[in-house]
Simulated scan of single mutants.
Amino acid sequence: MNDAPIADRFRTKDWFKSSYSAADNECVEVSHVAAWVGIRDSKAFTRDRLTVSADAFTIFISSVKDGSR
């Protein structure tokens, strides 16, 4: 098991852009570490990132897809 803090573990993970990203790359990128999802700005990826639980991210994405939020 990796005991490094979650924020540190995101530094070495693979990040990916949404399939809905615009051609000019104005989008967010996400990465998964254990039960957490990191979210960062694709144009400022060295800046701070938002970290949420995988459950919260799933609820957010489901709400966006069904238009309830």
Score class of each variant (00 low, 15 high):
residue 1 M to H: 07
residue 1 M to E: 05
residue 2 N to F: 03
residue 2 N to Q: 01
residue 2 N to R: 13
residue 3 D to R: 11
residue 3 D to A: 14
residue 4 A to L: 10
residue 5 P to D: 08
residue 5 P to Y: 01
residue 5 P to A: 13
residue 5 P to M: 08
residue 6 I to C: 04
residue 6 I to W: 00
residue 8 D to V: 15
residue 9 R to D: 03
residue 9 R to C: 05
residue 9 R to Q: 12
residue 9 R to P: 00
residue 10 F to Q: 07
residue 10 F to H: 06
residue 10 F to M: 03
residue 10 F to N: 05
residue 11 R to F: 03
residue 11 R to Y: 02
residue 11 R to D: 12
residue 11 R to A: 13
residue 12 T to V: 07
residue 14 D to R: 15
residue 14 D to A: 15
residue 15 W to G: 04
residue 15 W to V: 03
residue 15 W to D: 07
residue 16 F to W: 10
residue 16 F to D: 09
residue 17 K to W: 02
residue 17 K to R: 13
residue 17 K to M: 09
residue 17 K to G: 06
residue 17 K to Q: 09
residue 17 K to N: 03
residue 18 S to A: 05
residue 18 S to I: 00
residue 18 S to P: 00
residue 18 S to W: 00
residue 19 S to L: 07
residue 19 S to Y: 03
residue 19 S to M: 04
residue 20 Y to Q: 10
residue 22 A to C: 09
residue 22 A to I: 05
residue 23 A to L: 11
residue 23 A to N: 12
residue 24 D to N: 15
residue 24 D to T: 08
residue 24 D to M: 08
residue 25 N to V: 07
residue 25 N to K: 11
residue 26 E to F: 11
residue 26 E to H: 14
residue 26 E to A: 13
residue 27 C to W: 09
residue 27 C to F: 04
residue 27 C to Q: 03
residue 28 V to P: 00
residue 28 V to C: 05
residue 29 E to Y: 02
residue 29 E to A: 10
residue 29 E to I: 12
residue 30 V to I: 15
residue 30 V to R: 06
residue 30 V to Q: 05
residue 30 V to P: 05
residue 30 V to H: 06
residue 31 S to Q: 08
residue 34 A to Q: 09
residue 35 A to N: 12
residue 36 W to F: 12
residue 37 V to C: 06
residue 37 V to I: 15
residue 37 V to M: 05
residue 37 V to Y: 01
residue 38 G to Q: 04
residue 38 G to Y: 01
residue 38 G to P: 05
residue 39 I to L: 07
residue 39 I to T: 09
residue 39 I to A: 08
residue 40 R to D: 02
residue 40 R to V: 08
residue 40 R to F: 01
residue 41 D to H: 02
residue 41 D to Q: 04
residue 41 D to L: 12
residue 42 S to P: 02
residue 42 S to D: 11
residue 42 S to C: 12
residue 43 K to P: 03
residue 44 A to F: 07
residue 44 A to W: 07
residue 44 A to S: 08
residue 45 F to L: 09
residue 45 F to W: 08
residue 45 F to P: 14
residue 47 R to D: 15
residue 47 R to E: 15
residue 47 R to I: 10
residue 47 R to A: 15
residue 47 R to H: 14
residue 48 D to L: 13
residue 48 D to Y: 08
residue 49 R to F: 12
residue 49 R to P: 05
residue 49 R to I: 14
residue 49 R to L: 13
residue 51 T to C: 08
residue 51 T to D: 02
residue 52 V to S: 00
residue 53 S to A: 11
residue 53 S to C: 12
residue 54 A to T: 10
residue 55 D to H: 12
residue 55 D to M: 13
residue 56 A to R: 07
residue 56 A to Q: 06
residue 57 F to G: 03
residue 57 F to N: 01
residue 57 F to S: 12
residue 57 F to Q: 03
residue 57 F to T: 08
residue 58 T to Q: 09
residue 58 T to D: 07
residue 58 T to M: 05
residue 60 F to E: 01
residue 60 F to L: 14
residue 60 F to Q: 02
residue 60 F to C: 12
residue 60 F to T: 01
residue 60 F to W: 00
residue 62 S to K: 10
residue 62 S to E: 05
residue 62 S to P: 01
residue 63 S to L: 11
residue 63 S to G: 14
residue 63 S to E: 03
residue 63 S to Q: 09
residue 63 S to C: 04
residue 64 V to G: 00
residue 65 K to N: 04
residue 66 D to F: 00
residue 66 D to S: 12
residue 66 D to W: 00
residue 66 D to G: 06
residue 67 G to P: 01
residue 67 G to I: 04
residue 67 G to K: 10
residue 68 S to F: 02
residue 69 R to F: 10
